[in-house]
């Protein structure tokens, strides 16, 4: 392999990683200006003592967890059903939900909620955000779980049925255990996607359901605040660990 190609690869990886690395380094800078002064945890303290950030983090975890549980359950069942009997309608709709631009999904959901609330008298809040997240994450779960199902031997389940297992028993005791790595991998992806979403969330969130990305966005717009560097670094490291975990599981599957 030519030396030029290797050099280019180094440059490309620098481009991919340097912006985040620089952000992480400067999150430990004691100065509020972008000139290195000395190492300190000042901005981490600032981030942890900010009550708005704390509240938003709790919201993000609650929404992420609820969305993960629901989307994973619904998506896994859907992938299993599609494996048993394919449905062009269902597959196309899932594809469509994956490729529709986020901003369009966001305003479409907002339109639906407004229209429903006029008759039901409910308001935007955590529940509307969770439902939105479940909607756009289900297709990811189906994709990951379906990929695993395609590599599986259908005769195992048939054998279980022949040996007298009911359909439920065959699913829960034969098929499901083989799917566990793929399901966990999908669940991690859903959590990451949900935790990170800004565009859709900001459109369908209510006053009591501000999420972490929404606060970061507001802080980033307002002007420079090194505390954002500190939170960003924590998010990148946290989500980075989850994505590594998820890809490990997917390869194992």
């Amino acid at each position: 392999m030519s030396r030029w190609l290797s050099l280019y690869a180094v440059a490309a990886y620098v481009f991919l990683h340097l912006p985040l690395a620089v952000l992480a380094v400067f999150s430990f800078n004691s100065s509020r200006f972008t000139a290195w002064e000395s190492f300190s945890f000042t901005w981490y303290h600032a981030a942890f003592s900010d009550s708005q950030l704390g509240e938003a983090t709790v919201n993000s975890f609650l929404i992420g967890t609820a969305a993960t549980v629901l989307a994973t359950a619904v998506g896994t069942l859907c992938a299993y059903a599609l494996w048993k009997r394919s449905s062009l309608w269902m597959t196309s709709t899932l594809y469509l939900s994956m490729v529709t631009p986020e901003i369009v999904l966001g305003i479409a959901l907002l339109a639906l909620y407004q229209w429903m609330f006029r008759y039901l008298g409910l308001q935007l809040g955590m529940h509307t955000v969770i439902l939105a997240h479940v909607m756009f994450c289900t297709a990811y779960v189906v994709t990951v779980v379906a990929a695993r199902l395609r590599t599986m031997d259908a005769s195992l389940e048939e054998a279980a049925l022949d040996l007298g297992a009911t359909e439920w028993e065959a699913f829960f005791r034969v098929t499901l255990p083989q799917l566990v790595p793929a399901i966990v991998s999908a669940a991690l992806l859903v959590f990451i996607t949900s935790f990170d979403d800004f565009v859709i969330t900001s459109l369908v969130a209510g006053v009591d359901s501000e999420t972490l990305p929404m606060v970061i966005y507001a802080m980033a717009r307002k002007g420079f605040n090194p505390a954002v560097n500190a939170i960003s670094t924590m998010i990148v490291v946290g989500l980075g660990v989850l994505i590594l975990l998820s890809s490990r599981l997917e390869h194992k599957a």
Binding site: L16, H17, P19, L20, V22, L23, I192, D196, F198, P213, I216, Y217, A220, V228, S232, I235, V236, L239, G240, I243, L244, S247
Partner: peptide, 14 residues
């Protein structure tokens, strides 16, 4: 892949 999955918002903010 890893930086790609870690927060679009943070990557833009960077």
């Amino acid at each position: 892949i890893v930086p790609f999955w870690t927060s679009f918002l943070v990557r833009t903010y960077a």
